[in-house]
Structure formats: C-alpha cells, structure tokens
Design a protein around this nucleic acid. Structure first.
Lengths: 219, 219
DNA sequence: TGTACATCAGTGAACGCGCGTTCACTGATGTAC
DNA sequence: TGTACATCAGTGAACGCGCGTTCACTGATGTAC
C-alpha cells in the first residue's frame, strides 16, 4: 500500500476502502446462498448501504462479481506456494490438495468461476481478466509438473491437470447426505490420485498426445 | 415400445408423445441460448403451445429440465459403447473421446448437468434420478478401467476419471476467439492425455491413495 | 335418435414477485472570493 | 467573517421487465340412458 502524501491520496484510498467493503459484503452473501439467488439488493443490505450506492462504485453487476472472484485467485496462489514449500517431496499432490481445499472452503469463488466459464456472455474486457487469472494458475501448475520430468508439451499436461481438479470440485461438491468433511476428504483423495497419475506421466516422459498446438489467448 | 391393444393404451401413448414434443422443444431452446435465459414461455413457443399447457404435462420447471437432461444420459452411453467397440486397442481413450465429443456437440446436456450439480437446491426425488444416471456412467468407466489392470479401489479411479472429463468440458468449452472445431480438438487431446494417464495408472496397479472408503448414495 | 353429463386438452389473462438499473434529490464538506 | 458555489456520497422511489405458476374458461370428444 503506497503511503498517503496528499489529501487527494487519502480520498482515493477512502474510495478504495469503500469498494472493498462492498466486495467483502458480496463475498459473504455469495457464501451464504446459491449463486442465482444473490442480488444487488442483498449485497447492499449486507454492506449496510442502499442498493443504489453500489452503482457509484461499480458500473454493473458483472464487474462487481468479477472483482470479487479475482480476489480468490489472488488468495489461492499463495496457498499453493505454501503447500508446496511444506511438502517438497510431493509438490504436485500438495498443490492439488491446497487447490481443492481452498476452493472447497471458499465455495463462492468456485461457484463464480463455474458461472463465468459456463455462461460465456461476459464483457470481453472482463473475460480477458478472467483468462489472465487462469493463466497464472496454469503457469504454476506447469512449473510444478516440469520439475518432475520432461514431456514434449508440458502446457497440455498443465491444462489437463487444472481441468481435472476443476472437475473434481464440480462433480463432487454438495454430494447429498454427506457431511462437508466427508466430501472434502473424498475430493482430496481424488486430487491425490490425479496428482500421482500426472507425476507418473511426467516422470515417464515422452510426448503428449499427438495434436495440433494450442495457444492460449493473450499469452 | 409396447403394442397398442386398447383405446386406453393409445391415450397413454398420445400423452407420452405430447410430453416428448415438449421435451424436444426444450432441448432446441437450450441449444440456442444460455441456460439462464431459457424460460417456460420460450419452450412453449418452440413447441407451438401456450405456456400454460406445459403444466398439464410436467408439474414444474425442474422436472421438465431433469427429463430433458436424462435423455442425454440415455444417449451418451450407447455412444461410449460404440466408440469402445470400434477401438478395442484403446478403449479408455475412445470412451473419453466419445464422452467429450457427445457433450460438446450437445452442449445443452452438459450445461444442465453443471447447473444441477452446481445449484444443489434440487428436489430430493429428482436428485436421486440425477445420481442414478451418474452411477450408470461411473459403472461403465469403472469397467473400462479394470480391464486395463487391477487396483485396490477401482471406483476411486472411476470417480477421478469421470471428474477429469467433466473438468475438461467445463474449463475449456467456449474458449473465446476459437472456432468450435479448435476447441473440440483441444478438449479431445486433453481427454486422450487423461485417458492415457489413467490407463498407465491401472496397468501399474497398486493401491489408490490412502483414504477412507466412499459409498455412493443409493448404491 | 336425442339429451344430459363427464372428461380433458388447451388457452389468455392475471397474480405476485424480484430483478438490475436509473433518477431526481438531500445533505455534508470543502473552496473561492 | 460571510456568502455563493462546486463536489460528491448516499438515498428512496420508480421504471421496465420477465419470470414461474395459477385460474377460470372454451370446446371437442366420448358416454349413459
């Protein structure tokens, strides 16, 4: 956080603080009810302001949602780093564990990610921010995998690994009649299985499946 | 289809036909616009009836959606069988390919599946039908995997494989600035990578990751 | 053959609701002269 | 010191919309007597 030198700086900071309070409120609301049921009025109520006030800080709902989501990405990366640091003998498994643990604990981030991925009618500028965030995670996964061995197309493996972890989260979250603890345990087991398979694949080396190259947009 | 012996049979059949027309219309609407944007009025319009008429055939929206979705499951299984039959030397990869190809072609089924999995507020009876459908697919995947080798907990591997394929679909569908053909190609490559890793894991044998047992509900 | 009745597909209008967003306005604070 | 003005956070009411669902009703068909 840059120091405050002028009254003008303070004004900007205060505005940012107010924006943050709204995002905080949005996260709490997202955490408390299904995604579809979250309205601007709910968020405003949680933040203790009128719903009209939100529009003084965010141009529309999608932007607010995206800001809230991007916080999740900022948070998950340090979690992965920490897990890798603590488990140097099985970094991929630890990363999978951290990823699943975090997105399972903070379900609203995952719900938002799924929503954004699924609906597709996002403003292009917001979409680019979403993909930039995805690329950060892919970069980290690719780094972890290439430490275990060398394949012709490591990025493909990173894509597949990332997708697998997402799939575990979407397929098994909210399994009915299970405690949250059991579900988390099961998802983590699946994450370990996948991580081990990818590690073995990297150690075995060789080429990825034959197929055309694939450039991520904006890379 | 059972033969028609009585006028009463015919009446039942005709009612089923009308239900099917509504479900057909629903699928066409789902295929044409984002999930959130599909309304009962749209579906009625597509079927050429008043929206009130739908309620003479389905008690509510969720039930109609679920009926439409379950058709997808009925369709995907034969596709998998056919792919396996045609590619006896790499059944897992062929199954992954068929699964991804089908759900990518019929995007609305996948959208519905994601919606149901994500939102969680389903009627219990409908939820059970959803899980029964999932179990059918898991059974088939488990069978394919165990043909390649033996592990302590094959069901865990089937779960992870199923989840990975779902993850590929949700993570990479609607990649912006790509033709549908490119995206499908990429997803299929990822599916092959995952399939090969699972095959290798099964061939290598051994135990799944340590973890508590996991019983699917209703099994 | 004729009449009264039952069944049921189908319908347009209406209900009640909640949504995202906008607007005209208030009121507090700081500034220029 | 006082006054006119500018800025801007915040607001309640309203707009316009579309949704899922229900309701009272029509009209066609078959049935009982």
């Amino acid at each position: 956080m840059p120091p405050l030198r002028t009254f003008s700086d303070l004004k900007v900071r205060e505005r940012q603080n107010r924006q943050n309070i709204i995002i905080d409120a949005a996260e709490r609301v997202f955490a408390s009810k299904p995604f579809d049921a979250v309205s601007m009025r709910d968020i405003a109520c949680e933040a203790g302001i009128s719903h009209a006030t939100i529009y003084r800080y965010f141009p529309d709902q999608q932007t607010l949602f995206m800001e809230a989501f991007l916080r999740g990405v900022e948070e998950v990366l340090p979690r992965i780093e920490e897990a890798v640091r603590k488990n140097p003998d099985e970094p991929v498994g630890a990363a999978a564990d951290a990823f699943i643990g975090f997105l399972s604990e903070k379900k609203h981030y995952f719900k938002m990610m799924t929503y954004f991925m699924l609906d597709g009618a996002l403003d292009p500028a917001l979409l680019e921010r979403l993909h930039a965030a995805g690329r950060l995670i892919l970069d980290r996964f690719e780094g972890l995998l290439t430490e275990r061995g060398s394949v012709a197309e490591p990025r493909i493996f990173a894509h597949a690994f990332f997708a697998s972890l997402n799939g575990i989260l979407i397929t098994f979250r909210d399994f009915p009649g299970r405690s949250g603890e059991d579900v988390l345990q099961h998802m983590k087991v699946l994450g370990r299985v996948v991580a081990r398979l990818f590690e073995q694949g990297m150690e075995k080396g060789g080429t990825a499946v034959e197929g055309r190259g694939w450039e991520e947009p904006g890379r």
